[in-house]
């Protein structure tokens, strides 16, 4: 059964995303909304990992190298300026969407193993990840015209 591999991959991806949000918050602290929201969302990602941990343990531990091999590492920021902000948000969006689809797959696994506790965790975390993506999209849509057209 490879379900545990997906748990490991998801934990890794959530931790990467948490770190990305924190870097984003620190690197773009001059954007008055980014600092606080990014730290809030980073905390959410940490909580997702905490919620997954008992299941990861129940279904078998996974080697750290495996986690690294499967997980994405996309965020290279923080970059500077309006365009840098947009690109960093863009990276986070890709990472969040990786988490999102991984939650969906873990949810499929939960269905297959008939595990209601896991299903409940998936449901709540998946909807938070969806909101994270919505926030990133909202923020990017607002920033894009200025960054792409008027910034110098």
């Amino acid at each position: 059964m490879y379900l545990a591999n997906y748990f490991g991959m998801l934990c890794g991806a959530e931790l990467e995303l948490a770190e990305g949000f924190r870097n984003m918050g620190e690197g773009h602290g001059q954007e008055p909304d980014v600092y606080f929201i990014c730290h809030t969302l980073a905390k959410q990602c940490d909580e997702h990992v905490e919620k997954l941990r008992p299941f990861a343990e129940r279904y078998g531990e996974i080697a750290p190298e495996e986690r690294n091999r499967l997980g994405p590492k996309i965020f290279v920021g923080p970059r500077e300026g309006g365009l840098g902000l947009l690109r960093d948000l863009h990276d986070l969006y890709v990472m969040a969407s990786f988490c999102s689809i991984t939650w969906t797959m873990v949810g499929q696994g939960a269905q297959g193993t008939r595990n209601p506790e896991l299903l409940e965790v998936v449901e709540s975390c998946e909807s938070e990840t969806a909101t994270q993506m919505k926030w990133l999209e909202t923020r990017m849509k607002q920033a894009a015209p200025q960054a792409l057209i008027a910034a110098s």
Binding site: D33, I37, T40, L41, T131, Q132, K134, W135, E137, T138
Partner: peptide, 9 residues
């Protein structure tokens, strides 16, 4: 909007 983040619906 989402009241926590301000994400637009």
């Amino acid at each position: 909007h989402d009241l926590l983040t301000g994400a637009a619906l």
